[in-house]
Design a protein around this nucleic acid. Structure first.
Lengths: 349, 349
DNA sequence: GTGAAAGCGCTAACAT
DNA sequence: ATGTTAGCGCTTTCAC
């Protein structure tokens, strides 16, 4: 039994917080606080009898450990921050979901931050994130400012960049090559007999890179327009169904011969499909459509949407694992993971 | 100037964390730590000269306050937890987005937790949440177990339940009446001349309540089937396009006279619309469709989707404001907010 | 296996 | 307006 039963004394000044603490539990179990701590965190380091006594005390009191205090003392917050441009884009949803789940399963919590598509709030966001001393930061689909990059590196917090494969990662990386996507989509459409390709692209950095590769490949194949360029309609991110409808109108006005459109997301593709149906354009006979993301709905559309599938769940899970491995003091052997992508052929091509 | 320049001494044992602390900044500025703290948190309580000196020191060192430590000391974590059944349902996205944004604007961070639609992980999730001592918890669209309820109340953390209006809130409430939605939808469809109503409903609690009200109202109006019941197809939550397609097939098989379907989400409605187009059923001539949620895409479909619009952004913003008000020691005068809903008439009815 | 002491980095409370 | 002191609730370190 420890000596401090001095609770009613005027000694303790800030005891307003009714909070139950580890000390209370320890006292109840008749052990030192540190022993109670061990019983909860490293049960193996404690005798069976004491373990049981502490467990009982926890049960009886309904004690919930204060993870803020624990984090401060142990320098492990068990908090992981995820940053997405915006949650409503839905392309990253799968990743965010996998992230939360994987982390939660190991007792980590996820903080979610939205950076906006153009990095406006990025620096401020990063400051509050670093302030929490998270065990890791997962960056999804953003182009981080150099200031932000430096701060992040300086903070020493493990970082995983996702949804891309850059040659100069801040730290770890889980993604795929956007250039390769563009190239393979052009080749795929060419293989399906398309010779007048066009694109609708969001104005974010990755989509643009994807598109450049697409245009180059299409030109190289001789599948661009007569003037040997690939008509491209750029729309503001996050891309939407409205963008797709508008895009088809604009592109057809530019060049009525267009027989295939590569869309920067399935939402855009749905817009193109909708507009085509509204205008009586036959898909895929007159127009092939391919999207990106393979949303749950895409396979259910009529006609079902051909799309580039990226395993967002795998990205999320892998990123979470990388972070946790690092947080637990391990090193990640090969901290770069190319999850690749697949072109899922359905009825719109 | 404070007295401790004792940094190199072997005295300080755990100085491995390279971490820059408030003390370092204070020393650089030539003030006491608490003064530096004031300069950062309550700049008005400090002279201009000192404010400047502290700011400079922060700038020079790149100091980022440790919010874990601050939270522990001040008993205000500036962390708010949001719990959603699953993020992929997309109905709550708007709310989550508004939440993150509103909170971030005031220096709060949002933790996101997924409870699953059937409360399986609810208790475990709640434990880790309470452990962080968040300044508030926002519950979205879940039916929380009684154990969870009790714990939450016991913890004394402000709670906002959203997307519903229950007669017995845990604490605060921002939502709308699902019963009223059901009733008004039936009345609306009746007004548009529909006499054979049916429904596709997710199997979550709210959708079921909505539907019961819908069925009752339809029956009362004499707009059910000949046997005076409203055919209802129940699908597992989260609802999807696939559910909608399947639902239409099932319902038509049950009763070919059905001329209107109330869907528990816009996604389901899109499924019904798609299936109708695939089968050559004319919308709205032969079949009226009404969804719920007013997703961004819904107005862009062809035909554009009639739907029940709920202002998810308003819900998120209001919930965030309630929490912050409480966290800042205030009281929320009327902690129940009915945001209502509107039926947005478009082309599918 | 168990415990005492000494912080983690910050802020509330009480001076001055 | 600024400083001193004493924690917040936990865990690390070192000793037994």
């Amino acid at each position: 039994m420890t000596d401090d039963s001095s609770n009613e004394q005027g000694k303790r000044r800030r005891r307003k917080g009714l909070g139950l603490t580890l000390r209370d539990v320890a006292r109840l179990a008749g052990v030192a606080p540190i022993t109670a701590s061990r019983a909860l965190n490293t049960p193996d380091a404690v005798s069976d009898e004491i373990l049981q006594r502490v467990k009982d005390a926890v049960e009886r009191t309904g004690y919930v450990p204060n993870l803020l205090a624990g984090g401060l003392a142990s320098r492990r917050s068990r908090l992981v921050a995820a940053v997405v441009p915006t949650i409503s884009g839905s392309v990253f949803l799968e990743t965010v979901q996998a992230l939360t789940e994987t982390l939660a399963a190991s007792g980590y919590q996820m903080m979610l931050g939205q950076s906006g598509y153009h990095g406006s709030r990025e620096d401020a966001l990063l400051e509050t994130i670093i302030g929490r001393r998270p065990d890791g930061v997962i960056l999804t689909g953003i182009m981080h400012s150099t200031l932000a990059r430096r701060r992040l590196v300086a903070s020493g917090i493990p970082v995983v960049e996702t949804w891309d494969l850059t040659p100069t990662p801040v730290d770890m990386l889980v993604g795929f090559s956007h250039e390769k996507v563009g190239t393979e989509v052009a080749q795929y459409l060419y293989g399906r007999g398309r010779r007048h390709m066009a694109a609708i692209s969001a104005d974010d950095e990755r989509a643009i890179r994807r598109n450049r590769a697409f245009a180059n490949a299409a030109q190289a194949l001789g599948a661009a327009t007569l003037s040997n360029a690939v008509p491209t309609h750029v729309v503001p991110a996050p891309s939407s169904v409205a963008s797709g409808r508008e895009g088809l109108r604009v592109l057809r006005a530019k060049d009525p011969l267009i027989d295939a459109i590569f869309c920067s997301s399935d939402m855009v593709a749905l817009g193109v499909l909708t507009e085509a149906q509204a205008q009586g354009i036959k898909v895929p006979e007159q127009l092939a459509i391919i999207g990106l993301g393979d949303l749950a709905m895409s396979r259910e559309l009529h006609p079902a949407l051909t799309t580039v599938r990226v395993d967002g769940t795998l990205i999320g899970r892998t990123a979470a694992r990388y972070i946790m491995q690092r947080a637990e003091g391990g090193t990640v052997a090969e901290p770069v993971c190319d999850v690749g992508f697949t072109i899922v052929e359905r009825a719109t091509t």
